[in-house]
């Protein structure tokens, strides 16, 4: 064995390996990209906190050797909001799945984007509720066969980049698990951004989504991503909706600046309190 180690190894709780993710699942790939982004952005790991909700992706919090918390279902963003407000120096990352963030925690997602709370949200979208047995999720494309829609889903799916852009996010990007280098760069970029950053990662779920829809295994899905995804930076998010087997528009869609929640809170207090407002290094509860 050589002196070289896997660059992701220092970020893992190796005693918990092998993880429970299925063969061909893309969540592990996103963790690789996240680890590379942490290395690239030279972020102080002491100032980093990772919050996950429930679900397959929610297990990331248990597998990474960082200050991490595995919250209740859908409540990753509220927990992270509390962390950020109580200790503004922290870099808070929310790492969760599409069901946890956009369905059970859907309201938290849009309101965190509206308030522009300084969170980095990584949403691994496998188009289905994977951990609970493959039920239709808000992100499941129309006509998809799932355990709760055996004759095909009739519902239109959420277009997450469009949703969070409309709600007010300052950074919105989408990649697939095929775009590993781009994803790592995007995560590193989000760390340099103040405000609500949202990165959607399309990932295979070979066990439930691809199998039921006869789309092959994880590798076939990765080949599909390679073939059918099109990089369009700055594409209007209203036009990036997903279909079952159609084109996937990926890229950095939104990169804008607007004051984050804590800046706005300070400005409001200074305006209404006048001289009575005492600027502190941190806004803390006392």
């Amino acid at each position: 064995m050589s002196d070289f180690t896997n660059p992701v190894e220092p970020f893992l709780r190796t005693d918990r390996m092998p993880h429970i993710w299925c063969p061909g699942c893309g969540i592990g790939t996103t963790v690789n990209c996240f680890a590379r982004a942490l290395i690239e952005s030279k972020i102080d790991l002491e100032s980093l906190a990772l919050v996950s909700g429930i679900g397959c992706t929610g297990r990331v919090a248990g597998y990474v050797k960082l200050d991490s918390f595995h919250t209740t279902h859908g409540r990753a963003i509220p927990f992270a909001t509390g962390l950020k407000l109580a200790n503004p120096k922290l870099n808070v990352v929310v790492y969760s799945g599409d069901g946890d963030l956009s369905a059970i925690g859907g309201n938290h997602l849009i309101h965190a984007a509206r308030r522009n709370i300084d969170l980095k949200v990584i949403c691994v979208n496998n188009l289905i509720y994977a951990m609970t047995g493959g039920q239709t999720a808000p992100t499941t494309p129309s006509h998809a066969i799932t355990s709760t829609s055996p004759y095909g889903s009739c519902e239109p799916a959420f277009n997450l980049p469009h949703l969070v852009e409309a709600a007010g996010a300052v950074y919105v990007a989408r990649w697939t698990t095929f775009h590993v280098r781009q994803l790592a760069r995007s995560i590193a970029e989000a760390f340099n951004k103040k405000g609500f950053s949202f990165i959607e990662v399309i990932s295979p779920c070979p066990t439930l989504f691809q199998r039921r829809n006869k789309l092959g295994d994880g590798l076939d899905t990765m080949k599909y991503y390679k073939e059918k995804s099109k990089v369009k930076h700055g594409a209007p998010t209203s036009e990036v909706g997903m279909t079952m087997t159609g084109e996937i528009i990926v890229g950095k869609f939104v990169d804008r600046d607007r004051p984050d929640y804590q800046t706005m809170a300070r400005a409001q207090l200074a305006e209404s309190l006048g001289d009575r407002f005492v600027e502190q290094a941190e806004m803390v509860c006392s």
Partner: peptide, 30 residues
């Protein structure tokens, strides 16, 4: 190290040997 980036199970990685002959070094899964 693209194999290392893709591997969802953290089971493989690639690196460049320091004495950079146009050599390899994929420590084939350990």
């Amino acid at each position: 190290d693209l194999c290392g980036m893709y591997c969802p199970d953290f089971a493989i990685y690639g690196y460049k040997l320091p004495n950079a002959a146009p050599q390899k070094g994929v420590p084939d899964e350990g």
